[in-house]
Design a protein around this nucleic acid. Structure first.
Length: 556
RNA sequence: GCGCCCGUAGCUCAGAUGGAUAGAGCGGUGGCCUCCGAAGCCACAGGCCGCAGGUUCGAUUCCUGCCGGGCGCACCA
């Protein structure tokens, strides 16, 4: 609907220019067309006349007179079902007939699960890299938030017409592999009755013990402690953690990756050295105190970064540059990284390196994920990653279910901290937003069952739609028509949480309508019309829940 | 100290690119089931949008300064 009006507005504007009603045929930037908060400001409103008057004519024309010039062209274009008014500083408000909205209902029913599909992406390729958890232990809530934000984003982008690839980057090399190896080695020593070596850092937790035991039984020659051997042991452990814990948990969480990239392979294929060499050739490096530095301050970073340590070992940064370079050579149109908030300083240096290597660094977008705190009502659930003592994603799914975990983690902007209330997530009342939205869907299904019992076969026809004349019905339809806009908003801002808000708003509007007005009545045509409206709501609830990966139940 | 993020109702938070009278949920108070799912709904109360300036026809939104919080500032990953 919005698209249609915007198109008409542009046409009317062009006509007005051609016929000399307006002096300069230039479409101003920052033109808005949206549904105003105030009902008496119409179904839609645009600031075109205001920005045109200020921006283009530099105040020579008054915005209200600009509006007066455009409106006649709009009227002939749109017909008598639309009415335009000038208001306030020069806004053009659109009022449309009920019939216009009623047709929208049928349109939604007809499109079904395709409703909300956009061509914004036009098939452009986007890679979304997310989770990328170190394979040193089970996933926890923080990873889950990352996972669900990335996945919902991927789904929304797909719906917007992009080709999306989900990628998980595996950090299977370096110190954390050695640390895991060492932790496993110590447990194995304990298993055969040796006194474990004292180390400064290790992974703890029940899973480490179990893993150590499993590997002990599996490997004939127990591994005894050189650095390489420890890293190898760590890698064996990591592989199992990945296969037996991380991957199945993600699948159960309805997050599926198309690609798994290994950091180790970058080393094997000498990609890191290659990236370093190319950076040297770019002229943005220098040597100082035995280390090789990248002069990222050439690219707006606040300090230079080490690429190769004095001991000859490349830093994680070097590996990351190599990784991103490799990504960029795969030729996606856009790369989205979902990172923990502690990586805040990172985009500057990575973009800097990419730019130094002649890449369009702007094609890299970063979304940050803040911490999640688990609470039970007022009580904070204590967590210590260091002690291996934390609630895993698996625990959480077992306790509250996938739907609640996903929905709750999308309740707020990803860059703000979030309290996850486990008690609330389990409640079956309206306080619980997932329940509330799913209940709306189940209720609609129930009404359709009822209609069938009453012998009413739903058969939507355009002529019947005029029976949808109530203000509440009109509001519902306007809400429904916003769905495609929300999807587009997510594609633009990369903020999928707006969808959980939208679904709640829609559910509120439905529950209210349902309590006040009977759907299935003696009046057959009215029943048909209202069933059509309910079907449209059902479609949008399903499609919206689909994007955030939550089930739309028929009964609950 | 420097950089990034954030201060909106008692609480948890929405308010993309500046728009018309700032919203929702929870909590509080008071109401609604001979009727399609009351697992629901309605009404009321509650706000100097952290403070002070600036830009603008218009600022919760943009700029500057201050106050108050979070995070980052490794030859760690």
């Amino acid at each position: 609907m919005k698209d249609f009006l915007l198109k008409s507005l542009k046409e009317a504007f062009e006509e007005a220019c051609q016929q000399g009603d307006l002096p300069t045929p230039q479409w101003p930037s920052s033109v808005q067309l949206d549904s105003p908060k105030q009902r008496n400001h119409g179904d839609f409103a645009t600031n075109l006349a205001i920005v045109y008057a200020n921006q283009i004519t530099r105040g020579e024309l008054k915005s209200r007179s600009v509006a007066e010039k455009i409106i006649p062209h709009l009227s002939t274009l749109l017909g008598k079902e639309f009415r335009m008014e000038i208001a306030g500083a020069g806004f053009i408000n659109f009022f449309m007939d009920h019939s216009v909205w009623a047709k929208e209902v049928l349109q939604i029913c007809r499109e079904g699960k395709d409703y909300g599909l956009l061509d914004r992406g036009q098939g452009q390729k986007i890679q979304v890299e997310f989770v990328s958890a170190n394979p040193t232990g089970p996933l926890h809530v923080g990873h889950a938030r990352n996972a669900v934000v990335g996945d919902a984003l991927a789904r929304a982008l797909k719906k917007s017409g992009y080709q999306v690839t989900r990628t998980f980057y595996i950090n299977d090399v370096g110190v954390q592999m050695r640390a895991l190896g060492l932790s496993l080695f110590r447990e194995q020593q304990a298993l055969v009755g040796q006194v474990p070596s004292v180390v400064e850092w290790e992974y703890k937790g029940e899973y480490v013990k179990e893993l150590a035991k499993a590997l002990q039984e599996e490997t004939r020659n127990p591994i005894f402690g050189s650095a390489e051997e420890l890293e190898e042991l760590g890698r064996m452990g990591a592989e199992r953690i990945l296969k037996e814990s991380i991957q199945p948990d993600l699948e159960e969480f309805r997050v599926h990756f198309e690609e798994w990239h290994s950091e180790k392979r970058l080393y094997e294929e000498k990609k890191i050295q290659e990236a370093i060499d190319r950076l040297i050739q770019s002229g943005h490096t220098y040597t100082q105190e035995g280390a090789l530095w990248f002069r990222s301050t050439d690219f707006k970073d606040d300090k230079d970064r080490v690429l190769v340590r004095a001991n000859g070992v490349p830093t994680y940064f070097a590996s990351d540059v190599a990784y991103h370079l490799q990504k960029f050579e795969e030729g996606y149109d856009l790369y989205i990284n979902i990172w923990g908030a502690d990586h805040h300083g990172y985009p500057a240096r990575i973009r800097g390196a990419l730019q130094a290597l002649g890449q369009e660094a702007d094609r890299l977008k970063v979304v940050f994920i803040q911490l999640v705190r688990l609470v039970r009502g007022e009580q904070v659930v204590p967590m210590s990653k260091r002690q291996g003592d934390y609630v895993t994603l698996r625990d959480l799914i077992d306790e509250v279910g996938v739907d609640a975990v996903r929905f709750f983690l999308l309740l707020h902007h990803s860059d703000s901290a979030l309290d996850f209330d486990i008690e609330l997530a389990k409640k079956k009342t309206a306080d619980n937003p997932v329940f509330y939205v799913q209940y709306a869907h189940a209720r609609i299904c129930s009404v359709f069952r009822k209609a069938q019992e009453e012998g009413i076969v739903w058969n939507p026809q355009e002529a019947l739609m005029e029976r949808l004349s109530l203000e509440e019905e009109n509001q519902l339809v306007r809400k429904l028509a916003q769905f495609p806009e929300r999807i587009e908003l997510i594609a633009k801002t990369l903020e999928p949480h707006v969808l959980t808000y939208y679904l709640q708003e829609l559910a509120v509007a439905f529950h209210r309508y349902y309590t006040e007005h009977r759907i299935v009545t003696e009046d057959v045509t009215l029943s048909q019309a209202r069933l059509s409206l309910l079907r449209a709501i059902q479609v949008v609830l399903q499609n919206g829940l689909e994007v955030i990966g939550v089930v739309a139940p028929e009964r609950m």
